[in-house]
């Protein structure tokens, strides 16, 4: 049995190992597939759909779809780019995202994706939902205005920290991240040192009193677009 699987992404031969997802194999090959809910070693969630690719002509989430021999993956096409832009724009209008004063600005993956895709303003109408802020914990702040329901905090707390501090409640437009307590975050055993505190891609789950400590120019995406770290590993050209 072969230990290498060969498939193509945008016509480029890519080799991966059995059990890898398209995203894992693409990352190793230096091909960036945009994503939000996928994060490091957390289990795939397949919920944000930003990593949507065409697999043999059908849309699939690259973070959950295993690779197979001879698979044809389309990643960087006009059609997929439009789908991804629409998804990103919907995430903006579904929440209350004020990048201009958000402390995550420059380090925010949602903002960085918007910059990468050249989104100046969403085409969809803003929903301006009423969301709450939970500042009860002495060291951690939850600003649900910015939550995109990626579930990274849920998985990190459950699977890495072993605490299950966060969980989704509600459905559809009422879906939100709740905390495992009768009232607020202060009533949980959440700690600022938890892995979950570093999992949020946006400014929804924050360590208190550290905002803006990194000057403009030294933030994660000030000079290089999101995904450039992966693309810098690429050795094969189309």
């Amino acid at each position: 049995m072969s230990t290498t699987i060969t498939f193509t992404i945008d016509g480029v031969d890519v080799q991966g190992e059995p059990g890898q997802t398209i995203m894992q194999a693409a990352d190793a090959a230096g091909i960036y597939i945009p994503r939000l809910c996928a994060f490091e070693d957390l289990s795939p969630h397949g919920s944000c759909r930003v990593c949507t690719v065409m697999v043999n002509g059908r849309p699939q989430s690259a973070c959950t779809q295993p690779i197979s021999e001879g698979m044809t993956v389309e990643n960087n096409t006009d059609e997929i780019t439009e789908i991804r832009k629409d998804i990103i724009e919907m995430l903006f209008v579904e929440g209350n995202h004020y990048c201009m004063f958000c402390e995550k600005s420059g380090n925010c993956e949602l903002q960085a994706l918007a910059y990468r895709f050249g989104i100046a303003v969403p085409k969809f109408p803003y929903l301006w939902p009423e969301r709450d802020v939970d500042a009860s914990h002495p060291d951690i702040l939850i600003d649900r205005n910015r939550c995109i329901l990626c579930g990274r905090c849920v998985r990190a707390s459950r699977d890495v920290d072993g605490k299950t501090i966060f969980e989704f409640v509600g459905r559809g437009p009422n879906k939100r991240v709740a905390v495992n307590a009768e009232a607020n975050l202060k009533d949980t055993d959440a700690a600022v040192t938890d892995t979950a505190m570093d999992a949020c891609p946006v400014g929804a789950l924050l360590k208190k009193r550290v905002g803006y400590a990194t000057p403009v120019g030294e933030r994660r995406y000030d000079h290089n677009p999101i995904g450039s770290d992966i693309e810098s590993k690429r050795t094969t050209t189309a």
């Binding site: 201009m100 004063f101 402390e103 802020v133 500042a135 702040l141 208190k208 905002g211 803006y212």
Partner: peptide
């Protein structure tokens, strides 16, 4: 109102 205090110097200059 309701915003964290460290956000204010950046927010209010708008």
């Amino acid at each position: 109102l309701g915003r964290p205090y460290w956000e204010v110097p950046v927010l209010v200059q708008r």
